[in-house]
């Protein structure tokens, strides 16, 4: 079944790229192709320390893939290479390739800013900007150059609805985002990312700072959103991976040890190290 493609025209190169969906730069991403992200022999080092080693992983369209592993195993670092957020850290070296919709995002002429407009990210702790709820959600659109007030209002409403937050905030869109509860703030961060209509949503332990009820809402949200885009979620909780992810990748000491359908990975892991981790022998 050929699904309508959201990634029709697409370019990441710098020259003259003012608009979000810049004009047709012959995208090599074909209709019907299912890998949104593809990493090959991806290695990330901070100075001497190698944080991610030779990771090759394909991430499919409209799936939720969980990255699990003990603290310091490189899963967050790996996540941050997928939208080039690691560029903001001094002394990071990345080798290997990351292809987003068929484009190598570490190619020389690629502007990381444009990459980030196609890849949403939600952080560990809710980090709303000290602006109104509306301005938070409109932020990504505005920095990309959108000025049309009607379109902005519509996109903000749509994004808040998609993030299951609109009903709670529709009467106070112009109040400070900092007045929201932690769980609401985190859903606002999801809405903010969705407003830019990304192809991928990266989530770095999005529920680790939330209470159980907010966590449940966040997980429902993740599952629902997977109908529209693919989600890469880093999590400390194996139960969370079981609840939300169709596939799970296990990282250990910077290496990708094993990846597979979540249930299989937990019930019949192929690797000794995975077995030890999922049965709780270390972690």
């Amino acid at each position: 079944m050929a699904s309508p493609n959201r990634h029709a025209s697409f370019t990441l190169s710098t020259p003259g790229c003012g608009t979000l969906r810049a004009m047709a730069a012959a995208a090599s991403f074909q209709r019907g192709e299912s890998d949104v992200l593809r990493t090959r022999e991806l290695t990330v080092a901070y100075g001497e320390k190698v944080a991610v080693k030779d990771v090759s992983l394909d991430i499919h369209d409209r799936e939720v893939i969980a990255l699990i592993g003990p603290s310091g195993c490189g899963k967050s670092t790996f996540l941050r290479t997928l939208n080039r957020m690691n560029d903001t850290v001094d002394g990071v070296r990345v080798t290997g390739t990351v292809e987003l919709l068929g484009h190598d995002i570490y190619a020389k002429d690629v502007d990381p800013v444009l990459v980030r407009r196609h890849v949403g990210m939600v952080f560990q702790r809710p980090n709303p900007l000290a602006k109104s709820i509306f301005d938070n959600v409109a932020y990504g659109l505005r920095v990309a150059g959108m000025r049309d007030k009607k379109v902005l209002a519509q996109r903000v409403e749509d994004a808040l609805t998609s993030a299951a937050l609109f009903a709670e905030v529709k009467d106070r869109l112009h109040e400070s985002a900092l007045s929201l509860s932690g769980g609401q703030q985190q859903r606002l961060c999801v809405a903010r990312a969705l407003a830019c209509e990304p192809s991928v949503l990266l989530m770095d332990e999005p529920a680790s700072a939330l209470d159980p009820i907010s966590t449940e809402k966040m997980e429902e949200l993740v599952v629902g959103l997977a109908k529209r885009l693919c989600i890469v979620i880093v999590t400390h909780s194996m139960n969370q991976a079981l609840r939300v992810a169709s596939r799970t990748a296990f990282f250990y000491l910077g290496e990708l040890v094993e990846v597979g359908p979540t249930k299989e990975l937990f019930e019949s892991p192929q690797q000794e190290r995975t077995t030890s981790y999922v049965t709780g022998r270390f972690g």
């Binding site: 939208n83 903001t88 952080f123 000290a130 932020y139 990504g140 990309a144």
Partner: peptide, 27 residues
């Protein structure tokens, strides 16, 4: 100004200059 706010802005596709002008300086 918390680093998280800069990260939020950058991750939404803002340039460094936009981040400074729209997020860091007002704060």
């Amino acid at each position: 100004v918390p680093r998280e706010m800069r990260d939020a802005s950058l991750a939404l596709g803002a340039t460094k200059l936009q981040t400074i002008v729209r997020v860091v300086l007002p704060r």
